[in-house]
């Protein structure tokens, strides 16, 4: 019934497991482990029944595409299949690096992504600190409920709203601007404004949701800390700065590392939906480009190479940022 690892690892089962322990001690640890492997696996067969469907899923749908990523190094054609296609090495990568839009794509992607990481990192913290300063009551809970809500609006609906509100002639924003005596602004047609529209609309949608974790962390602060600070004469801003912020630091770092891991992974759905021919100069990012090159123009190998370049860079950045965070703050993902 019992696996032997349990005996080693679970002090709570000592009474029952003691029997095994004594017998096992006579043998060396390694031998005991090896000899018991089959039995240990067998004794948890029910856990495997639970786990195996999910493992199979990941092997097929996550590792399958990772295996298929080799077409980035081949001249893939659907007819010949992966193995029948000619191996061309780094040719597709070379073509991508040499193309005139390469620097533009990287620039757009980095610009939009760094801009949204910064805004998306700071605003939820500010909102959480604000909510934490409100007195417990109806207003506090209403504010929380309302600010979470936009997160659940679908990207399609949200981008639909944006295109309506930001319309050049009759959109809400331009009506206000014109009403105040200004000139209409081409929010979605002026390439220089795309990143602002993207980032600040994202803030409208995601800030409330992003603040939940901070609000929950703030709720865990010991009331006595505030009392002590008060006695020492700290103002409320000082209390926020010296108590609340340090308390949020580990959460902040973890979330920052995670967002850096998708530095080149700007959410393509929203970019794609807000894109038009007029703002394409600044709105084309790597992921939307992969879609167009790969699925619209059917350059499978080339698009896979572009996508692979993107994921490798992301992965490397994640590991680097994580290592730095580990070094300087003891907080890391693993």
């Amino acid at each position: 019934m019992f696996c032997q690892t349990e005996v080693v690892q679970c002090p709570s089962s000592q009474q029952k497991g003691g029997f095994f322990m004594k017998r096992g001690k006579k043998r060396t640890y390694a031998v005991r482990r090896k000899g018991g492997l089959g039995r240990r696996i067998l004794s948890c067969w029910q856990l495997y029944v639970f786990l195996i469907p999910t493992l199979v899923y990941f092997v097929i749908f996550s590792y399958g595409p990772m295996y298929g990523v080799q077409i980035a190094f081949r001249d893939f054609s659907v007819r010949k299949g992966i193995w029948g296609s000619r191996w061309v090495g780094l040719e597709h990568f070379q073509r991508f690096f040499d193309s005139y839009y390469f620097s533009q794509l990287i620039k757009n992607t980095l610009h939009i992504s760094i801009y949204s990481i910064i805004v998306g990192f700071i605003l939820p913290i500010l909102l959480a600190l604000l909510v934490n300063e409100l007195r417990n009551g109806k207003f506090k809970s209403i504010l929380q409920t309302v600010t979470y809500a936009p997160y659940f609006i679908s990207t399609v609906v949200f981008c639909g709203m944006l295109t309506i509100f930001l319309n050049n002639t009759n959109g809400l924003f331009n009506q206000i601007i014109v009403g105040l005596g200004g000139k209409p602004v081409g929010f979605l047609t002026d390439p220089s404004l795309f990143s602002h529209v993207f980032v600040w609309s994202g803030a409208w949608q995601g800030t409330g949701w992003g603040s939940i974790i901070y609000i929950a962390a703030l709720a865990g602060i010991d009331e006595q800390l505030y009392e002590a600070a008060k006695i020492d004469g700290a103002t409320r801003l000082q209390r926020i700065w010296h108590i609340n912020l340090p308390h949020l630091l580990p959460t902040m770092i973890t979330l920052l590392i995670l967002s850096c891991g998708s530095l080149l992974g700007v959410g393509y759905e929203k970019v794609f939906l807000l894109q038009n021919s007029l703002n394409a100069a600044t709105s084309e990012v790597i992921s939307t480009y992969v879609y167009k090159a790969g699925l619209v123009q059917a350059q499978y190998s080339f698009a896979t190479a572009v996508g692979l370049f993107n994921s490798v860079i992301n992965f490397v950045i994640l590991i680097l940022v994580n290592a730095v965070a580990k070094r300087i703050s003891d907080t890391s993902l693993w």
Partner: peptide, 15 residues
């Protein structure tokens, strides 16, 4: 691992 690295859109589509 699959959270941080993946095959990408095109290999998934071909799969």
């Amino acid at each position: 691992f699959t959270m941080f690295f993946g095959g990408g859109m095109i290999p998934t589509y071909l799969l």
